[in-house]
Write a protein that binds this DNA or RNA. Sequence first.
DNA 1: CTGAAAGCGCTTACAG
DNA 2: CTGAAAGCGCTTACAG
Lengths: 336, 336
Amino acid sequence: MDKRPTIIDVARAAGVSKSTVSLVLQNSALVRTETREDVRKAMVALGYVYNRSAANLRSADAGLIGLVINDLRNPFFTEFATSLQMELSAQGYATVIANTDEDSALQAQVVGAMLEHGVSALVLSSAYGDVSATFDAIARANVPTLQVLRRAEPDRDRFPFAVPDYTAGSRMATEHLLALKARRVAFVGGFSGREVTDSRMSGYLSALAGAGLQPLHLPGRPDRDFGREIAGRLAREHPDVDAALCFNDLVALGLLTGCAELGRKVGSDLRIVGFDDIADCRQSWPALSSVSCDIATFARLMARTVLHWLKDGTPPPRETVTPVTLILRASSEGVW
Amino acid sequence: MDKRPTIIDVARAAGVSKSTVSLVLQNSALVRTETREDVRKAMVALGYVYNRSAANLRSADAGLIGLVINDLRNPFFTEFATSLQMELSAQGYATVIANTDEDSALQAQVVGAMLEHGVSALVLSSAYGDVSATFDAIARANVPTLQVLRRAEPDRDRFPFAVPDYTAGSRMATEHLLALKARRVAFVGGFSGREVTDSRMSGYLSALAGAGLQPLHLPGRPDRDFGREIAGRLAREHPDVDAALCFNDLVALGLLTGCAELGRKVGSDLRIVGFDDIADCRQSWPALSSVSCDIATFARLMARTVLHWLKDGTPPPRETVTPVTLILRASSEGVW
DNA sequence: CTGAAAGCGCTTACAG
DNA sequence: CTGAAAGCGCTTACAG
């Protein structure tokens, strides 16, 4: 295990000064083509590997972006994280990632670690709970931080926020169900009081109010298990419910499984719409209607937004809301 | 945006030298408790953030591990990556992650970027194809690298490899199907010639050979779409097939959907076993039998293995094979 | 226990 | 176009 060669070794091998090597590294136009070639050859010959940490010590941008996600195992967030990372990579930035499993204390810890590693910026989909430690640390380090998908810290002048238009999505979905003559539409999953649940419910509530109908919220964890459980309760306790808008696709897919188990016909007996349009929606049986947030595009936009902030110095708008679309499939339309 | 304070600022505020501050940072026993307290207070007062890059320049271990994954959107790899990252984080290491989308050229690029960032070690689930650029760069940089799940570079003395016991898993699954009187067992998905497909098929082949039966491989992409497509072909072209071992759970779940679509009864007409035991298996209808690699445990083991290598200096065994278990559910047993 | 000095691998003005 | 020198924020012997 010999030590890695440095620019000094390269300079010696190429017969130039280390300043010249540094200029070659930065593709400076100051260096003569011939000299540049010599230096390049020496690098290859020695197996030189650029040391960004050292470079970073003098200049600014480390080329590292921190990505902190509350639930990376959820396919919606997986798609977000993956698309964001790949866009950053295409722009020459590496991504340090951490899953917090909805634990705000763990979140404070991983954010602290990222700051020590000198991330140039952070993209944060926060855990719920007391996040003051997280945001205090970020504020101290003065690192540009974009809140996405969940607004945990209300100071959006300092921590701009971006989110798909959940309200419009749930309104469209509800109106779609009402147009199909649904007379009792339930909202399944999520917990009121939580930001995301509230905004996903608000369009539902306003659409029902517009039609003069009463809402029904069946709160619960945003996962398949809950969706499956609720199928029975829905059949037993709320036989009048003929349509369900779910908090997310996982709940909806679980509900689909639960209905299959009970022999309940989805799309006619019960119309179901999910939220997020994860890849699995196309492959369920029946296929699941869903509100698409086009999360891959959203992720790429976030990557470009944070890099622009970094380079330009001016923060993005305090709040960005991106459009959503309703994707209709058999689970709500009944056409298998 | 004022500059971040450094140990010099802290030293001045605490009335000590910067060496002392450095010792406090390292929890050295040399510093008097009282002095330590003074320094700590000064750090908090100034909002000091430790700069690891600078520290790394002098000492060795940067506390950064690179994780490169061929398909991060696949839940099997998502679970692996997330569990690995969380274990590394618990041990004080940050994770730089990159998805390569099965693109060996992109893989070489992201690995190069990670080496520039000074990762102390790499964990790599490689893309297929020409990976020489990837491994040449790693060899030049002399960074400990653990190959996982897929052996792309044959030199395992230099690049140790770890994988669950796919062969045993497919043998157990096949024997299970044969014990239930299946007479024609197909292997669905994957491509022969690929390492993972070959090892997942080998146990299947040997179990069939042991029973004096002929194998049938229906090759294809390892995703839900393919599984769904194949359901029709299976019914039309291979009506004698009464059991299917799938390359992975995604194929099996797609096949389940396809059978539902065709009205084919899974568990009796056709017994199905998947591979990987991703979380969705419990929630499908019928629930999917699968070979569990206990990937979360595997991931944590890999985290500890690579850190041990880093600290100890001695590489792990050239090949590690971890046990798998067969999880029986309704899709193969027919008990709904 | 604490301080002064050198050095990690780069970049950045500044000369020439 | 190229080189000599200082400095980025730390750690590490070495004195005291």
